[in-house]
Design a protein around this nucleic acid. Structure first.
Length: 468
RNA sequence: GGCUAGGUGGCAGAAUGGUUAUGCAGCGGCCUGCAAAGCCGUCUACGCCGGUUCGAUUCCGACCCUAGCCUCCA
């Protein structure tokens, strides 16, 4: 039984799908106004991991992750670039898909775009107005009246009065309460606008997720997720909207991933201390390094981004792929008999997706595998362990490359020596070694090392290599 | 000010009321022409102060510190 920490209650609870055997989950994706940053990548990888693990357990999963393609930032960026906002959003949607594919994130069942759900949003706003939860303010905007929604603040554990005591609330004469938020913004010249009962305008940010999740998953579904920064006010507002419009039960479990920090400060676009996923991918050996890094600490905790951390992740993957090297090339790697490792892995993942613990299990498995492969009689055992390691890694979206591909890619792969040149150097070294001309063979090895190629002599005169 | 999450060994990062996390780094050994990789062994912990307990890093309370939210943000 999978236990999940529910942000709504602050406790773990068993996942009992509303519809037996079928989990419906929604996560708030990104706003496509620029390349997404590594902090966004964390959320995207985390919920990809969640959906994978649920499927791994035999559940049918309908995963919906939205794309916000109508928003102030997009409109502003498009205007600055002198292009239509739709084209701007399309460009960065395509870029997002490229980067996500490289990170090994599977496509969700559905990726609704806000601009395609305007009608649904207007229906929901209409329901909110009709039921007295929303009003049209003097400036034409349609506002949500938070005082009317009793449970407001439940998710974030706040009371309206506490929030007001914060004092830094904006002054907006049009609002009945400073925390009232916009459902529908009245049109301004030059901005995208749609006709509505409240005049031409465009949606506020929060309403899109209520409309899209309801349309695609229904009013009552299993998991709703996103970054911790969306807990308040975005998710709080979503609850107010969806539940206000129809007495919906909405999401059973709310999941929030922690921040990716840099220098122990939150990485965010407004602070300017961020790296785009694209930049990071260009600097590392393989996108799997970033995926591994993002899964190497528990999803709810904070984690710190640093080059050193990425290097450690790369080293960890080197170790795992080294264990798989050569062994996995033999036999059917999908056939294996689960050992205690599979059980431990499953227990870790079932306990609120404890990926660091699960990764530790993989590392223990790698040790057993390394031991088995040094014993000739254990060849079969080694193959089974390799199969198990790959299968478990696959549950996290890791370790799916042929090991040789992993070792041959690297920062020097494009600019340095070609594979053929390396092989030629190795042959020359082998000749020198056979002539017991060790100074020469060592010179060749050092030369290759300087070019980022590390040699490893194996029994039987075989030399393998890898790029550092 | 209100609310939330944390403080674990050189670094990263889990579990756990008494017993090895795991990886990297260090040290010793095996293997190797020497390396690399691997294997074996090994050293560095549990913010501070009280309490509960036969026993607490683990439970309870106070305190200190850090980060985050309270304004767009994964």
């Amino acid at each position: 039984m999978i236990q999940i920490h529910n942000s709504l209650t602050g406790r773990k609870q068993p996942l009992v799908p509303i519809e037996p055997g079928h989990v419906r989950m929604y996560s708030c994706g990104v706003t496509v106004y620029d390349y997404f940053h590594v902090g966004n990548a964390r959320m995207l990888v985390v919920f990809d991991m969640v959906s994978r693990w649920l499927r791994h357990g035999g559940l049918r999963v309908t995963y919906v992750r939205n794309i916000t393609d109508v928003d102030d930032k997009i409109i502003n960026r498009a205007r600055d670039a002198g292009v239509d906002w739709r084209d701007h959003a399309k460009k960065f949607t395509a870029a997002m898909h490229e980067d996500l594919d490289r990170l090994g994130c599977l496509r969700p069942e559905k990726e609704p775009k806000a601009s395609e759900y305007i009608d649904e949003m207007l229906v929901m706003i209409g329901q909110l107005v009709a039921r007295g939860y929303a009003y049209q303010a003097s400036n034409g905007d349609v506002m949500y009246d938070v005082r009317k929604f009793g449970p407001y603040g439940r998710l974030s554990g706040r009371k309206l009065d506490d929030l007001r005591a914060g004092a830094r609330v904006e002054v907006d004469e049009a609002k009945r309460d400073p925390l009232d938020f916009v459902l529908w913004k009245s049109a301004k010249p030059g901005e995208p606008a749609w006709p509505s009962a409240w005049g031409e305008g465009r949606p506020g940010w929060h309403i899109e997720c209520s409309a899209m999740s309801t349309k695609e998953l229904g009013e009552h579904f299993d998991i709703h997720g996103g970054g911790l920064d969306l807990k308040f006010p975005h998710h709080e507002n979503e609850i107010a909207q969806t539940c206000g419009a129809s007495d919906a039960k909405f999401a059973e479990i709310w999941m929030h991933n922690g921040f990716l920090n840099i220098d122990n400060e939150k990485m965010s676009k407004s602070l300017g201390n961020f790296f785009t996923t694209r930049e990071v991918l260009a600097k590392i050996k393989h996108p799997e390094v970033l995926r591994f890094f993002l899964l190497s600490s528990h999803y709810r905790g904070p984690m710190n981004y640093s080059v050193d951390q990425l290097t450690q992740s790369e080293a960890a993957l080197n170790r795992l792929y080294t264990a798989l090297r050569d062994v996995s090339a033999v036999g059917d790697e999908h056939v294996y008999s689960p050992t205690a490792a599979t059980q431990a892995f499953q227990a870790a993942m079932d306990d609120d997706f404890n990926t660091p613990e699960a990764i530790a299990v993989l590392q223990g498995l790698a040790r057993d595998l390394n031991t088995a492969r040094t014993i000739p009689a254990d060849g079969h055992k080694a193959r089974l362990l390799a199969g198990e390691l790959r299968a478990l890694g696959g549950a996290l979206g890791l370790l799916q490359l042929p090991p040789e591909d992993w070792f041959r890619c690297g920062v020097g792969a494009a600019s340095g020596l070609s594979d053929a040149e390396i092989e030629a150097r190795i042959a020359a070294r082998k000749a020198a070694k056979q002539a017991r001309n060790f100074p020469e063979s060592d010179r060749i090895r050092d030369e290759l090392a300087a070019g980022g190629v590390i040699l490893e002599d194996k029994p039987g005169g075989v030399t393998t290599w890898r790029r550092s």
